[in-house]
Amino acid sequence: MKEIVIISGKGGTGKTSITAALAVLAGKNAVIADCDVDAADMHLLLSPDFAYKEDFYSGKIALINQAKCIECGKCNSVCRFNAISVINNNYTINEINCEGCGYCAKICPANAIEMKDNLTGKLYISNTRLDNTLVHAELNVGAENSGKLVTKVRKEALRIAKETKKDYIIIDGTPGIGCPVIASITGANYIIVVTEPSVSGFHDMKRVFELIERFKLKSACVINKADINQDIVCEIKNFLVLHNVQLIAELPYDEVFVKSIIEGKTVVENDEKCKIKASLETFWEFIQNINK
């Protein structure tokens, strides 16, 4: 069983559309995981039934018991996160700023501060219209995306894939290079980077490949919207050759991607010209072969 993660560095390159297309091509033989817990969108294309729902707690958050508070202000003086202020004469925690370090609770002379469990999001496990399983999550507003919820999504997907004897876990990653991305890719079997030939797409892609090299992971690349800028396509190809990364598909700029999203479909189910569909089928075959 193999974990395939799709990431991009830059947002909006077509990561989710392409991941959802792979979910269709893999069909029953895969568990799908949406690790973009900050802005999970894949469920919009897969009609999940939200069969299982679980609250996800991560870390702590401070709560001041006003009855016990002696207003000494020590909590405020040690807080490095600007999370304690005086509102209506009461010392109050700003829940968005509080990182849950608990320093205030430890030094409060009146024991007036309690560290409570922090509800940071929800995890869902669903059956999809493709007759496979989708694991996804929703991070609460302003919650810290430390990668813990991402790790939880991956773990659940792995457990289900093992129990139901699936060959693939297909993972939609997050944009960027920080903790949620690192949590999405560490230990995965194969990373697919979806880029676009724009100055920013190329810039972000280089940073993502540097991260992948640092973690010594196997990877390949897909260029989406490839006809937008031929010069940058050449630069990307040179970069891939230098870094010994295989280019497995070049997809054209096509509004069929948006049209499909609006219809709640994936692009392989909606491509009249069949060109994109054919490229993605070749792409999926490539993935099946690397695993042999």
């Binding site: 900050d38 802005a39 991070l139 302003g142 919650a143 944009p175 960027g176």
Partner: peptide, 14 residues
């Protein structure tokens, strides 16, 4: 600002 709705965005926007 960065994309998303979690801590980096909060820090950027506040």
């Amino acid at each position: 600002s960065p994309p998303g709705t979690s801590c980096p965005v909060i820090e950027a926007v506040k």
